[in-house]
Amino acid sequence: MGVRRGTGELSQSGRCNCCCLFHISSSCVAPLFCVILSPAAFRSVFSPRGKPDGENRRSLCPVSPSVPSRLRSAPVTVRFVTNTTKESKRDLLERLTGLGFDIAEHEIFTSLTAARNLLEQQQVRPLLLVDDKALPDFTGIGTDNPNAVVVGLAPEHFHYEMMNRAFRLILDGAPLIAIHKARYFKKKDGLCLGPGPFVTGLEYATDTKATVVGKPEKTFFLEALRGTDCAPEEAVMIGDDCRDDVGGAQQAGMRGILVRTGKYSVHFRRLWCLE
């Protein structure tokens, strides 16, 4: 089997995806020794009928929990990367271990981690427009008298007063950090505005550009690799989102592999010009 760089797609068909994973780590891309997985893809890799990332636990195919250990017994470093804006690292870890995966906290790198790292680098005190559930990831970061603005998915903060507050800080020079810029997301009762529109409004009003820290930003992947002792060209990203996972990783100099599970669908293949 082979990996085609251009499409980031495994060419072998009719085989279970966990085997593909195994092949990646063991033989076909031997020089690549860091595997980065998006948990959404990760879960769906092991759940043949898996739907796109959902909050619900779902049944997994029987082999699934063994796969991380198989990866681990191979000479690779593994990181699990995701664009969550409201699930703290601890909650995510709990959910994944609850599903039977043997994962350590330091192996998880999320867009919230990336935001936190950036705040620490710039030594700024953020106004956090993030979901309460995400706050544990910012423990220890000072927020008094803020001089930065972080925007995640936080409908309860997206109102006139808070937007004005964020706007004034940015106009006075506070950096605007966006966890990501998704236009909308889907809820049971229909589509809902994501953080992207609110970030865009603040960008327009202040004539600035937000620093986006999540996938598919190049810095996200480079940050995720930091501490792995692994260069981008030695790493492979496996995910179910052609743009955010595969495209972003390739932009950062990594290889990208698209799984045919999760949000992958004919629609996405067409959308991202794979056909």
Binding site: N164, F167, R168, L171, R183, G196, P197, A205
Partner: peptide, 25 residues
Amino acid sequence: RYYKETDGLKLDVGAYMKALEYACD
């Protein structure tokens, strides 16, 4: 983009227009 009121600068309609433009393309 914004305007001034007695208690400070406020976001104007343009910011929300851009938000909806972005969301709906």
